[in-house]
Design a binder for these strands. Structure first.
Lengths: 344, 344
DNA sequence: ACCGATATTTTAAACGGTTTCACAATGCTA
DNA sequence: TAGCATTGTGAAACCGTTTAAAATATCGGT
């Protein structure tokens, strides 16, 4: 059907292997032959068959990304898109394709990964390590397939991973509020089993400690990455005898809930309560008031993950490579935290 | 390295072709042999090499999706993620993989598509037909590759495509406002060159006409799928001597701008102005007030696109298949349009 | 004109499957 | 019991590439 290397060879009056070598710029091919063959390839519209190539080279030049289960949480949708964009961009730049697979439950994920890697359809995998995909990690580890985690695993600290320094990020965010004069700073956290929540609380606590401020249990509320969580947290805080004047919030979406709660109770942001949250999704600029947020460089996270993975795949001479990449974060200060408390 | 069909054959004491037949459930293979071979495959951890298989079968069981250039517009990010989720879910269900490729400019897109299809890495493509990717369409058409458009092309009305009936959707939205008693209804549109904008204006006009209401030029404002567009449109409307009491808005994000504008000017939604927009992104529930929106079933759009494409690919006996799929939309009425004007 | 060294190209064997064709064994019919 | 259809299996060719090894061409030097 389509033009093969043999057709080109015949037309050019050389052997298939010569054509193959022209393709791969083999050094021992004459200028003249190379020119002629290339011309004929162009003329005949030759395109190498990637499958045939992979079959013999045992490398597919593609990687896969496992989409975790349906993202109920809005944030995850924005997060993934941004991440995937980063991954795909850098992969394409390195000449790799990205295969997407949708996980459902854990078992399905293992099956998908197994089919793709055991079937030699992809060379490696990128995992969004949100919770416990131990099975998938275990599978990849035991089969010695290259893979990279976006996020951090406490269980496997030595795995190749790309992450934000969440402790530091929370530290910076909290310190920012402190620098505005706040002394009573609350924290709205995510699910307590997520490392991300734990790390951010840790950074928050550290910043308070460093500033000589006390960390009160009743100023920390746990929830989910949902707007309601923020709303609920808010009504809880506002019923306390001594209320925080500023809040560090684990995610932008949660902040929206907080904003709504405050609005309904008649409090003003930032005059009554200052707010800063994490992830800097594009909506933060749109809310009223615009939200201060810690930009964790999601695109970059994806871009770097892809880069790290491909580097590992290509690393045949077993050079020792870093196994942990930290993507820098950046405070994006907007109206929601621009009001300085009078130094009382 | 890994277990091949030959290894299994040897161990089972049969020929490779027999193993192959067991794999594909060939009818003329004995129960007994099949059982034994399967057992041994399991035991040895055999996984078919997808590359080898596609090489001979000339089909890859995978499709590609071209991500349009960086989506500056927030809506697009949410839109794509949802769409991709639909595509991937159904593709996986049909046993297909999805390869993502990032377009940049048009030329890069053609190159990507060409590499993937000419190189026989994928069997077909899904295109997000936002603007003029004539080149890509032209390429696919002229090479006779299976592909499906998400959206509609005026230039090529006969292409396989999956779309919303935007005329009807706008008609329904407008009629909803009319049924609330509104007589002065404005329209905030998107870029005039997009078919989506054109169709929605058309439906809006039709609903007005059917209700005997006049369609005034000054009540139609064009813009982009950006929050600012809404904000600007708002200040324009509110300076008119005769202002609309309700608005149909081409996209949710634009609505957020409108909301902000109204809020700043001291108008209340829905008491002073009723609002309904399109796309029903998950944020619509979160805004104050929650936004009425036309849900166009984005996930479904993707799911159906994938299904249609795969059906076409598999359709070797050339059955005649539909070439145009319309995904039903649904009005999601929320607070922003729940106030009935007194029948004057 | 012949030699060895070097440059270029070809031959042939993979890679891991599928599939056509041939053949043996079995069952059924007359 | 011969004749024929059916069932189950194997041998071999092929899919489109790469690549090691062998073959051939080229060339400077003697």
């Amino acid at each position: 059907m389509s033009v093969t290397i043999k057709d080109v060879a015949k037309r050019a009056g050389v052997s298939p292997s010569t054509v193959s070598r022209v393709l791969s710029n083999h050094p021992r091919i004459s200028r003249e032959t190379s020119r002629k063959v290339k011309e004929i390839m162009e003329e005949m519209g030759y395109h190498p068959n990637i499958m045939a190539k992979s079959l013999v080279s045992k490398t597919t030049e593609s990687i896969c990304v496992i989409l975790p289960k349906p993202a109920e949480e809005l944030f995850l949708n924005l997060f993934f898109m941004e991440l995937i964009r980063g991954i795909v961009t850098q992969a394409n730049r390195s000449g790799y394709d990205v295969v997407l697979s949708s996980g459902g439950n854990e078992k399905e994920e293992v099956e998908a990964v197994s089919r793709l890697l055991n079937g030699r359809r992809v060379d490696g995998a990128i995992l969004l390590y949100s919770r416990q995909d131990d099975q998938v990690v275990e599978f990849l580890k035991s089969n010695n397939y290259p893979f990279v985690l976006v996020g951090r695993s406490e269980k496997y600290p030595d795995l190749l991973s790309v992450d934000t320094d969440n402790v530091q990020a929370a530290y910076d965010a909290t310190k920012h509020l402190i620098s505005l004069g706040h002394k009573r700073i609350g924290f709205v956290s995510g699910p307590p089993n997520l490392i991300v929540s734990q790390d951010r609380i840790k950074g928050y606590g550290k910043a308070l400690a460093d500033a000589g401020l006390e960390m009160r249990k009743e100023w920390i509320v746990e929830g989910e990455f949902l707007q309601e969580s923020g709303y609920r947290a808010m009504s809880f805080f506002m019923n306390l005898p001594e209320r925080p004047t500023a809040l560090v919030i684990v995610d932008d979406i949660v902040s929206f809930g907080v904003l709504r709660g405050l609005h309904e109770l008649g409090y003003k942001v930032p005059e009554d309560v200052s707010i800063i949250s994490f992830n800097n999704i594009s909506l933060t600029e749109l809310s009223t008031p615009p939200l201060s947020s810690v930009d964790i460089g999601i695109y970059n996270l994806g871009y770097t993950a892809s880069q790290a993975l491909i580097q590992t795949i290509r690393n045949d001479d077993n050079t020792i490579l870093p196994h942990r990449y930290i993507i820098p974060h950046r405070l994006m200060i907007r109206e929601s935290s621009m009001f300085s408390l009078p130094k009382s």
